[in-house]
């Protein structure tokens, strides 16, 4: 039996709920921060090949803005909040009131980077706090790391711990959308949670689901 075959439907539903609670709180936090409505999509839990994982937010080569933090404590892992550059610019413009901000323009970059880091801090912090409350586990976030680079180069890092036991990743994905942006249908922010392989047992136990069934 491979690593990814061992999960039952009930367990996958529990993981979906983990994504739901975390991202739900993060959406509320984002909504307060930007003083506007933020919608959250029903989360999904997918078993996907590595190539599929890095293409979930676009192509592996596509440039994305990413906030990554390591989770330490009872259930170690990694968490990413991924935004298309255009959306990151929108958020920074709203937060700083600087309508000319672009992520490629160096003059305004420093303030923009601080704003993006703060945004990442608040979102990932609220996601993780909700997760810790829900599971009654002790989870410590690292200082978030901000990257603007190819999706594949960033997301593949989240797969490393898993890659020693599996050729598939379990992706707990939740999408956020700003409904006031009527210009496009696309989803504007993704949360990806990658528990380390040994953390699944801990998460299931904490949530009252048998780790082996």
């Amino acid at each position: 039996m491979t690593f990814s075959d061992q999960f039952s439907d009930v367990q996958l539903d529990v993981l979906k709920e983990v994504g739901n609670i975390g991202a739900g709180h993060a959406a509320t936090a984002l909504s307060h921060l930007l003083e506007r409505k933020i919608e959250m999509f029903v989360p999904s839990v997918q078993l996907a090949d590595f190539d599929e994982v890095v293409e979930l937010s676009g192509s592996a080569e596509e440039v994305v803005v990413s906030v990554f933090l390591k989770i330490e404590g009872d259930a170690p892992g990694g968490m990413f909040f991924i935004l298309p550059p255009v959306q990151a610019e929108r958020f920074v413009r709203i937060m700083t009131g600087d309508d000319s901000f672009t992520i490629h323009h160096s003059d305004s970059m420093e303030i923009g980077v601080s704003a993006l880091k703060e945004l990442g801090n608040i979102l990932s912090g609220s996601y993780l706090t909700a997760l810790a409350d829900f599971t009654q586990l002790t989870l410590y976030p690292s200082v978030p790391s901000l990257n603007i680079d190819m999706a594949g180069a960033i997301l593949s890092f989240g797969l490393l711990e898993l890659s020693v036991v599996s050729d598939q990743g379990i992706v707990i994905e939740t999408c956020l959308r700003d409904p006031s942006d009527e210009t496009k249908e696309s989803v504007e922010g993704h949360f990806f949670l990658f528990p380390d392989p040994d953390s699944y047992g801990t998460l299931f136990k904490a949530l009252g689901v048998s780790a082996y069934d």
Binding site: V54, A60, E61, M150, A151, G152, A153, S156, L160
Partner: peptide, 16 residues
């Protein structure tokens, strides 16, 4: 592996 004029490509190498 290729033994023709086909190019080989891989995207998004980070730590890989």
């Amino acid at each position: 592996v290729t033994k023709s004029s086909e190019k080989l490509r891989t995207s998004g190498l980070g730590s890989c």
